[in-house]
Amino acid sequence: MRKLFQGKNLIYTIGVLALMVVSVVFIRVPLPTISLPAEHIPGWSIAGFPITNTIIATLLADITVLLIGLLAVRKMKDVPEGFLQNIMEWVVEIFDGMLTDIGGKKKARAWLPMFLTILLFLLFANWWELVPGFDSIGVMEPVEVAYAKTGVTTGYETTSILGMSSLVSDQVKLTEEEQAEIKAEAKHAEEAGEEYHPHEAKGYILIPYFRAAATDLNLTIGLALMVVVLSHIIGFRTVGVKYIRRFAMPVITGMKPIDIIVGILELFSEFAKIISLAFRLFGNIFSGQILLFVMAFLLAFLLPLPFMALELFVGFMQAFVFAILTFIYFEQATHSHAGDEHH
């Protein structure tokens, strides 16, 4: 620590501190408008369906995974030379070994593609969040329109930096009268079948083109739903009709009444699985995103750096946890009910 204040290091230290002070005083980063649902990008739509920024990020993650995968297998060599092939083989080998440890060779091979797809897809979906431009390049929307759509009341003033219009940190708040006025006007416009446009925009909010894919509940719930439903399909396939016993149907199996309660618990745990899978991923990535917003808002330089490193770790960890839980659910579904069979 003492070395920071000696010789050349002193210059660097002063430079960094000066940069931080400058950033605090002159480059105030506005806090982005935080919205739980993914934002629709104004004016973009396919066949009547609006496009959200998370959909774009999802496609970006898809493309990344596919590109890396295809480049890795394009020139397969027995003695790996390419960086991508090396790294993909390493990934496949490590997780193949890990799944074999958990579920045995046969199951590991059967579900390794599912595991790896989830892992790689979520990994890149989460890591794209850290790329500059995510959450910061987008369309300016007048705060009045945003209010009419989602109830946002705080916008920002704009300025032009290097020919691009950007938000500055000066906030614009809609007063209650203005809010009522906008409501009335929006209603009027809707009745007339037109889109609402304000006469004059007081402030703007940014609707980014890209937003981390896992901050959209549609993605996380969709994946969790798919995983849990698939695990039941796998259970039915391997265990057969007996699989229903796990949810305790005394009428069919003649089990003790206490099993009804156990069965109801099991049934609930299936829903809990979906919820916990979906919200674990969503919560981690969404809160990570907000953390980065807030850190950049407090101090634009240097401060977000450790948190970006943390997000790198969290992004990998959540992808891995989702994937390994998927495998464990699949694996559990192939066991018949613990009470029926004595292993």
Partner: peptide
């Protein structure tokens, strides 16, 4: 930690 994350959500 994910339990804390649920609270956060």
């Amino acid at each position: 930690e994910s339990i804390a994350i649920y609270a956060l959500v």
